[in-house]
Amino acid sequence: MIGRVLLTFALFALLLSGCQQPRMSVLEPQGEAGQMQLDLVYLSIYIMVFVCVIVLAIFTYVLIRFRQKPGDNTIPKQVEGSTKLEILWTVVPIILLAILAVPTLKSTFTLAAKPPKAEQPVEVKVTAHQYWWEFEYPELGIKTAQELHIPTGKKVHLELTSVDVVHSFWVPSLAGKTDLIPGRKNTMWMKADKPGTYEGRCAELCGASHALMNFHVVAEKPEEFQKWVKQRQKPSSQPQTAQEKEGKKVFAQNCMGCHAIDGAGLKGPGNKGPNLAGFGDRDKIAGLLENNPENLNKWLHNPQNVKPGAHMPAIDFLKKKDLDALEAYLESLK
């Protein structure tokens, strides 16, 4: 078991050095919670393979040995049963299940335990919306969306809820799912051992764009994470060039009702859509498209085309000049 784990890690180190592709395999866990879950997956697979092998062995033997021979019309002996055999195949499964049940119960409680204060876990409030994710760090005073930044080697304690329908938070390579349910706060924790970008998915049917409600977990070394925190606490949200200034105006006229930008000094409700502070630093637009001007244009022009049923209206009524200015401003948000 340990050998296998080490092997997986070795393979991963190799992969990591090679490419920076985001990963989302349950079989290649990148942290304690995922590892614990995978250990149980493997334990149950070993037990179940054992069961399958026995059944298939008997099955194959029976099918070959006892098929009707041509011309053989004898009546086989009518056997009523065998108490010994029946006890055997009642007791053995019970033992096998006990072997699985003990570590299962242990992990169940370990995963449910809140990380103690001494470990200084990072607290994050996750709020799911149709079809995007909001991440708030109450202790750090940061609100962001679509990209969850975490430091490596530290437990991250998540408090999850939803404002509309039931969603489910899933980062396969870091930890299993927890549902986000309106009117209810669930919790879970996860931990990333190594820096990297890990794919997240919504796992509960939540509407037309359920398939596209993707997000990223970006795990960074603690120093890097601190840098990111500093940047987010004092975001550069003020326009620099004339075009960006124009863009901010366009934003204030058209977008402010739903979106906020921390540090931009805009006074709007801005709580229906993601907070766009630091937008230019994000890998993806809407958690889905590569973050570049072309895609931003595509998204603004017709969000429903990218994410069916998205609540963001199409911004197709702006003059080209205004749209360009808006895009320039958004991309300048760091």
Partner: peptide
């Protein structure tokens, strides 16, 4: 059915199920 049955037992383990669930 044995295949379906054994994966059923695998699903019965909550920590592992957090990964399998809804996938």
């Amino acid at each position: 059915f044995v295949m379906g049955g054994v994966t059923g037992v695998m699903l019965a383990s909550p920590p592992a199920d957090y990964q399998y669930h809804d996938s």
